[in-house]
Design a protein around this nucleic acid. Sequence first.
DNA 1: TTAATATTTCCATAATATTGGAAATATAGA
DNA 2: TCTATATTTCCAATATTATGGAAATATTAA
Lengths: 105, 105
Amino acid sequence: MKVIEAVEALAALAQESRLVLFRMLVQAGKDGVSAGELSEKLGIPPATLSFHLKTLVHAKLVKSRTEGRFVIYSANYAGMDKLIAYLTEHCCAGDAAQCAPVKKC
Amino acid sequence: MKVIEAVEALAALAQESRLVLFRMLVQAGKDGVSAGELSEKLGIPPATLSFHLKTLVHAKLVKSRTEGRFVIYSANYAGMDKLIAYLTEHCCAGDAAQCAPVKKC
DNA sequence: TTAATATTTCCATAATATTGGAAATATAGA
DNA sequence: TCTATATTTCCAATATTATGGAAATATTAA
């Protein structure tokens, strides 16, 4: 993962609405949630939510599929894995023993 | 870790100069690096760098100590651990098997 | 085809973040 | 004390991001 990609993924999560949104999608699992349901549950107007979803999709943390008139969004676990791997690597660089997450494993 | 704290830590890292800066501090280890040396190595003017350092310190990802006229900055591994733990938890919530970082452990 | 529903794009406004020169602050040494 | 060095704060310009109403697009069902 390149620095720019990491920055984009971090920026996508560095906003309260989007972090809450992402958590909701992670909890929803593979089935995902429609844009409308997300808008309603989060109390965010459709246009605003669409902007945030686009940001997360572009950062490869969320994916979408179309089902009829509905667009279903779901967490992209692979993208999140890459981000966590990047952070873990750079957190531990030079001295792995300093990094608790690795010690715990 | 609360959502707001996670957002602040993510935002602190979601900027290229700061992510590169943080990586440099992680690699430098406990000894840390002075503000001036960071400014020179990164090619960022002192005032701008000071702004970025303040952002990282406020997010608890970096700490500083004063040595004479110098201010030495170093990575706060504990803070980074908390962020990674938060992300790992919320990445895996609901179905731990989906999350590669956990499977690898 | 027409009406209803779902979502996105367009656009303007508002809010927040970034940048860096210049001045202010702080410490060390002569 | 005076000067040099290190860093931060102040401040204003610039850039980026967030917000949401209204219009546009797309699909379904009647």
